[in-house]
Design a protein around this nucleic acid. Sequence first.
DNA 1: AATATTACCGACCGGACGGTAACAAAATAT
DNA 2: ATATTTTGTTACCGTCCGGTCGGTAATATT
Lengths: 179, 179
Amino acid sequence: MAIASTMFRERGYDRTSLDDIAAGLSITKPSLYYHFASKEEILLECIARGYILFQQKIADRDDIRLPGRERVRIFIECYVDLLQDNVLSMIVADERVMSDAGKAKSRNYKRMLNRDLLDRLEVGRKDGSLAFDDARIISFGIFGMVNWMTHWQSGALQIDARAVSDQFVAMILDGIGKP
Amino acid sequence: MAIASTMFRERGYDRTSLDDIAAGLSITKPSLYYHFASKEEILLECIARGYILFQQKIADRDDIRLPGRERVRIFIECYVDLLQDNVLSMIVADERVMSDAGKAKSRNYKRMLNRDLLDRLEVGRKDGSLAFDDARIISFGIFGMVNWMTHWQSGALQIDARAVSDQFVAMILDGIGKP
DNA sequence: AATATTACCGACCGGACGGTAACAAAATAT
DNA sequence: ATATTTTGTTACCGTCCGGTCGGTAATATT
């Protein structure tokens, strides 16, 4: 499962054949079909596991009493961390190849993640630690920034995960413009 | 060519067959092969055209005398604009399916684009209108934020392009944190 | 000892896709 | 008018891939 997750992230869902996954597990394709009903089911399982991992990671560090600004920071740091560790197939999953049912499930995970960030943003807006116009656009921007890290592969990402999330957070919170 | 570009952006390169492209042009696949040597060549042509369009667009608005901060803003606004108009196949092009030669060409365009933004950032740093740590990370962050818009498709992107780039720019330059 | 259940395999199917060979019709040049 | 180049077409090939079929060891249950 973790292997499939890694392969999906490295080669992309379409270009990872069931034979590839099976080979990675030292079994054969029909054997995969004993455990899973379809390729899509494998993907959905990967997505679910990624989401759970994220939930666990963030639960460890989260504190509801913190100002929104800090809670956004925590979200971003956890998210970057998980991306670096090759999990979160959600990002690689192209809904266009999925069945309606699978699409719905996948969207649901994305929606939950987005809702979490949106909530943190609104908390910050209310407690005065954040200011922005449309939370949805900000949220999309943040996700995009981080999700696109999956496209850095090979070459540029010699950079430490901590440095990345630090500077992303700095840019998001304080901006790069000088007054 | 513009048709291929749009199709690549909408369905993805892999899932756009040569028959699809040919049908979109009301011709047949072998006829495509009269004009292009391979599917990859079509993609590369799309990438090149997208780059040229970007160059034209930004040349219209650019002014070397402006402070770096403004020149970064212009870059982002032009980039968002072009993305909304379905051009820039560069983003959709997954280097993993390309030949070494194609990969090199594709990377070259990306490199040029990245260099342009990096230069603007450095100008801003020197003239004091911008402040940041590692320009590469900032640049990647900005590209990610905007590039990821291609994944918004269907549903969320009811938002006007201008609103998006305005808020992206606001977040990048001023941040969303309150002092 | 007989019977299920679990976990796996080799061989194959049908469809899609990139690409090609051989040939036909316009368009253009002479 | 004829020859030639440009731009198409129909029909096909090889390959890859998701998925299936029938069968087989090994382990657990009765």
